[in-house]
Design a binder for these strands. Structure first.
Lengths: 161, 161
DNA sequence: GCGAGATCCATACCAAAGGATGAGATCCGG
DNA sequence: CCGGATCTCATCCTTTGGTATGGATCTCGC
């Protein structure tokens, strides 16, 4: 009875990315609260009666910008982690000309990072049999007989980084 | 899973990073000017007489944060380029530091060209058992558990072309 | 000379990879 | 709606890879 609903077919990292995103949002909220506190402190202590509103605005702008930089770096680091395994396609000409499908390409990329078939299966949420199936057709299309040769040829063709 | 500590060498990427940084700074200045313009526009048009200063502050904070996110992503993308582009001109020093012998290195190179153990044995005029023996100690020294990982790590360390 | 390391080889065992075949499910363009 | 492509999975089988253990030479430096 093969009726598994095929979760996360395109990448197994969705959960990780989401949790990282949520963490960042929480931290952003805390930082925002701290920022408000600092502003209020400044407001009632020093500036607001003596200096113009423009100065106050400037402080807000600078602090908010810094906060934004931090948030931006946080968010982008997520993408970087995700992008290590599955994403970039350098030479999709070769991929098309060889008739390599999207899923086969994912298996190829994961394998090229030194993972065993079982690890590939776990990462892509498929069975070991499916990994072997993809690799078999992949070896045929690449005209190789082992994973090491496949990685060499795929790199030479620009299919993988 | 981060298989290797890919140290980016300090070669031709420094210029690129600096020019990218300068571009970002210029764009940041332009964006800041635009931001000021927008704020002034809002100020003299709608809000400032009717709504409280807090609303104005909030607008500034939101816009500045968005700007900061953009700047942060810009700056961090530079780092990403540098990190993704390793050009190892290195090193035969690694061979010594890892204690890899001459014969092991020959087996490693042959294996890295996609040959099976039997093929390595034939090419080097030794028996299959010897190849396995060399590879076993090689895997130990490289701290890997498969030939694919070994090739990856050896290439990253620069001991393989 | 002697020990250490390197090279070579063997045997046995288990795990992993690869090949072959078949088949159900889904999707999509004609 | 059908057929082809894709993705999925299973099972059986053979080959290869990797580990462990042990032993035989050989060289080289102390």
């Amino acid at each position: 009875m093969p009726l598994l609903p095929n979760f996360a077919p395109m990448n197994g990292t969705a959960e990780f990315r989401r949790s990282g995103f949520q963490t960042t949002v929480v931290l952003y909220g805390l930082a925002l609260a701290a920022l408000v506190f600092i502003l209020k402190y400044i407001e009632y202590r020093f500036l607001i009666r003596d200096l113009s509103v423009e100065v106050y605005i400037a402080v807000v702008a600078v602090l908010s910008t810094a906060l934004g930089v931090w948030v931006g770096s946080k968010l982008l680091r997520q993408k970087r982690v995700v992008a290590v395994e599955p994403q970039p396609v350098l030479n999709e000409e070769a991929v098309r000309s060889l008739g390599i499908s999207a899923r086969e390409l994912e298996v190829l990329r994961t394998m090229a990072n030194g993972h065993s078939n079982q690890e590939i299966a776990d990462k892509l949420f498929i069975s070991l049999a499916t990994v072997k199936s993809h690799l078999s057709s992949l070896f045929g299309k690449l005209e190789v007989r082992s994973r090491t040769q496949a990685v060499l040829k795929a790199k030479a063709a620009g299919i993988i980084p």
